[in-house]
Design a protein around this nucleic acid. Sequence first.
DNA 1: CTTTAATTGATATTTTATTATCTATTTACA
DNA 2: TGTAAATAGATAATAAAATATCAATTAAAG
Lengths: 206, 206
Amino acid sequence: MSNQNMSVPALRRLPLYYRCVIALKEEGKKFISCTDIGSRLELVPIQVRKDLQAAGATGRPKVGYEVDELETVLKEMLGYGKPTDAFIVGMGNLGQALTAHKEFERCGLEIVAAFDTSPLKIGRDYFGKRVFPLNKLVNLAQRMNIKMGIITTPAKSAQDIADIMVEAGIKGIWNFTPVHLNVPDDVYVHNENFMSSLSVLINRIS
Amino acid sequence: MSNQNMSVPALRRLPLYYRCVIALKEEGKKFISCTDIGSRLELVPIQVRKDLQAAGATGRPKVGYEVDELETVLKEMLGYGKPTDAFIVGMGNLGQALTAHKEFERCGLEIVAAFDTSPLKIGRDYFGKRVFPLNKLVNLAQRMNIKMGIITTPAKSAQDIADIMVEAGIKGIWNFTPVHLNVPDDVYVHNENFMSSLSVLINRIS
DNA sequence: CTTTAATTGATATTTTATTATCTATTTACA
DNA sequence: TGTAAATAGATAATAAAATATCAATTAAAG
């Protein structure tokens, strides 16, 4: 199924290609070349070709890739076909923003439940998602076979939440806090560290 | 001042070291080694040492780095001392979440004004930041000498906003939309593409 | 029917980032 | 005072990613 030996940088570029393909499809294009995609995304054609090759797409010389086929291949590789169910913990501003985010549903992610410790939030619905107390997480995750968790709590609770997620059998954690999480080897953590991005930006403009 | 020839991966790790240093300082530690930092962050000591070296820190054999000095060096390199003023455009859920984010102020970023097109939002305050109409951006940015812009609008308006920011003289754009932005060479765009992160997560758990 | 231009696919090269090795230094302890 | 252990700092090696080169293929134009 999903190619595990694809490099992280390449994998991160696939959604860009997907968006590009959808846009071109809407423009009525039937075929598309690496050069086309590259010029739209400011990437060199060779890189696009290598990435598409790794994703399993095949094209025809002089013509390029068939748009419909490319869409299918990318969709498959990105898991857009069968969405992954996820829990989100921390219904602060960021948690709410992610829960409201429409694009996730079109892109392989279904946030099925939210968790918080605040009695003001528990039992409420945010954008159609019910908020549960934290102590229900393990049980619900196991019953619903949840494999992905999103952490949008304050930094100080992040490790505790991660521990709970690990106990619940979650295998992928999307960590929006700036703390390093300690988890077993079979759990993959992706850190969305805004501070890291900020460092680069500040460095580049000064 | 800020070292332009530091690699992006290394630069992205600096905030992690900074957090670690602050934590150790609070624990009362006076000196800290690469091994210590590495074991806390699950990084190999050599990598930590090289990064700190690039940041300009110097340590003593057998002892490590002085915590206070390390804090100063990292703070300087990260620009935490003199915060960068920024404008944010798009006061939807994500825009509000970022505006509310307390940590930015402690980490070199000051969001000084917000912009939106919705009459319901213009004139209001969100977390102490006034929302202005979009057509005020260029003028305000020039008067306030704003060099950083954050885009949290819907995807379809992103390029338009980027064009306005470029016109306003903004040199660094933090793009939270999934679209590729076309800007002149002297403007640096950092893409915070949630879809890219999602690809990696979905790929790794399946 | 032949030539030309564009493009893929495969392989090779270069660049960048990470990791290892080795030496010098410093502290702690016998 | 001497020795062992830990560590920084410098240099070297390795691994990973990006980019270039080249041959094969195909469609279109002459």
